[in-house]
Design a protein around this nucleic acid. Structure first.
Lengths: 364, 364
DNA sequence: AAATTACATACAATCGATTGTATTTTTAAA
DNA sequence: TTTAAAAATACAATCGATTGTATGTAATTT
């Protein structure tokens, strides 16, 4: 019979030098491999021994060092995420969904933000690579027009899944909503409310989502026999100031719009705020407004903002599931598959009702 | 002279087996230790050799494996963050600030969410420990009343810094705003607008921030000679439904309030929405409303919500700086130091102006 | 009781980098 | 030219776990 517990207290007092399986092994006069197998519940260790080992491990305050395990097993159990801004509602909810799925499957998540800048995105990609992430989830920066930093992952066999904003050139799965279709529906809705001159806030043309939304908008106009007027399109980065500048510009035109479809909620809300504070127009009477994304602000503003519901959480979850699937199955990588997540038009008061007389008068 | 580049293409084609310093060493007929030193710019390697090594490393597509380096150096260059919800604006902006500082100092950030549940917080803490994070930043869950899972870090010499919500029992630095003082100011402001019956939405009593805000509210009432009426305090988890239920309840009282100070914006906005949609009262005429945190919605809602500006980004940055300081200096750990970040009352229309006649009449 | 099998555990290499010490090469001084 | 000192590089152990192989012991079969 061994008496092994009397030195336990001594070991526990050792501050820095964490307890390793070798310490346990020494204490129990066993080999570290047996400890490892026991703690991993291998059938190669007797049940009774396992129990004893677990007991001692607990008493010694053993905590596994996953870094060591990962090095040995050549797996990091980590996935990397690059988003433009963590604090944007859409992205933070996507991250929330990603984290949810990842943790349930034993993966850690390392998060980086590109601040919508290409250079930072490249640095982030490098960091994630050095950390040997097993997969990447990303929504590309507004500034990104080269993609080698993303392609390197695919070349090395590390799966990559885009969500929301993707790089068409890169052969990777993408989880998106049908931007074209939903933008079409938004525009159609505005047309059906009797609007004649529908303006559009668009984002940087290199991003698919904005291109698609623009195309959906344009197609709807054409299908319903409205003239498409380039002067009605205001392209920007869709920040608050852009929304203000955009609406200011559009309302100053001789032939001003009677509706606005913004490619995101942020700019739409900024525009609405500007209209109600600094102009004599009212929403929706004089100008109907619709946004995109259904951010929390859309249901707070008065009148409620018509927008497109796009659940970041759901998109994040689906993207994470797909990524982990690719990691685990170790196949199917590099397919260009497109996963389309449901999105739907949410009609609120900002776009409903007949256009006001004012607009008609303003026309020639 | 060596001719070493002709086999490079062969190596580059090797998919899985990543290039290591040993591969470079073999190719250059050098020792891996020299490669390591060269890539780390050690003075022990000749400048010319370094240049050659860097060149070959690049050609072979070498990417360092930080996991291996970390294991050897006993450092993970990673800090862990546990927040209740990533998608809450305050937390996502705090994370944004944390990430900002961390990356500038070469640290990665692993993020977990507790969903405001104790059990998940414990699991998260365990995961972060296993990943050998060098420090922890956390804002504790609403449900947390035991703290061993946090204390273990301090016991093991891993610095921990609280931000926003802290555990008073745990001997760790905390980065907070002066909740008592600002809550006092909010209440004072409402009193100065001539409000007589000020209600309060409070959060779970085990969380310092809500306790402090409540105490600030109470103290202001006392200082200004108002009676403190427990019936005017509604305690909840401050979610949207809680805000609705709370205002419903308060307005149904025989002696209803003429002002509301909510411990967060979410519930305040929910209450305002309820008031304008389902009652005959108006804000601020019949009931003034103030919130806490200055979330984006506060400036979107009409009338604008009076609230307290509390920059998540700044708090996150300061907390991260402090944590990294503790990690690096390897001293000063376990001090109970409190770092107070500026916060200030933002007065908007929701609380300004004289109280309406209606209220006076309702009084005895 | 001898031989065979199954079971439990030990040994040793390995993952990819870092780092103290030893050795070789180069340079400078005698 | 010989030798000492300095510079450049090689050797080898290490971080903490995992895992294929070897070894020893107990259980089973003949």
């Amino acid at each position: 019979m061994y008496v092994i517990f009397n030195s336990v207290s001594y070991i526990c007092n050792m501050k820095k030098g964490r307890v390793t399986i070798h310490d346990i092994a020494k204490h129990m006069k066993l080999d570290s491999s047996t400890i490892s197998r026991a703690l991993n519940d291998s059938p190669r260790v007797k049940a009774k021994t396992k129990e004893r080992i677990r007991q001692v491990a607990k008493e010694l305050g053993y905590k596994p060092n996953v870094m060591a395990a990962n090095l040995r097993t050549q797996s990091s159990k980590t996935i990397g995420v690059i988003v433009p801004w963590i604090s944007r509602y859409f992205f933070s909810s996507a991250i929330s969904g990603i984290e949810e799925v990842a943790y349930s499957q034993g993966y850690n998540v390392i998060i980086c933000q590109s601040h919508d800048e290409y250079d930072r995105e490249v640095t982030n990609a490098y960091t994630l690579f050095a950390n040997r992430v097993e997969g990447i989830l990303t929504s590309v920066a507004m500034d990104t027009i080269k993609y080698e930093h993303l392609e390197q992952f695919i070349e090395e066999g590390i799966p990559l899944v885009f969500f929301d904003r993707y790089a068409p050139e890169v052969k990777a799965c993408r989880v998106v909503i049908d931007d074209f279709k939903t933008a079409y529906q938004v525009t159609e809705h505005l047309i059906k409310q009797g609007r004649e001159r529908i303006a559009h806030f668009s984002g940087p043309g290199n991003l698919n989502i904005y291109k698609d939304r623009f195309n959906g908008y344009k197609k709807a106009l054409e299908d319903y026999g409205k003239v498409f007027d380039p002067a009605m399109v205001y392209e920007s980065r869709l920040l608050i100031d852009d929304g203000i500048a955009g609406i200011k510009h559009l309302l100053s035109l001789p032939d001003r719009p009677d509706a606005l479809f913004s490619s995101n909620d942020l700019a739409a809300i900024a525009a609405m705020k500007y209209i109600s504070k600094h102009t004599e127009f009212t929403v929706p009477k004089d100008i109907a407004v619709a946004g995109f994304s259904n951010s929390p602000g859309a249901s707070i503003i008065e009148p409620g903002l018509t927008t497109v519901d796009q659940s970041g959480e759901e998109i994040g979850k689906i993207a994470a599931k797909r990524l982990i699937d690719e990691i685990k199955r170790d196949i199917d990588k590099g397919t260009n598959e497109v996963i389309t997540v449901n999105s739907k038009l949410i009609v609120r008061e900002s776009s409903v009702g007949k256009v006001s007389k004012l607009v008609k008068e303003a026309k020639p």
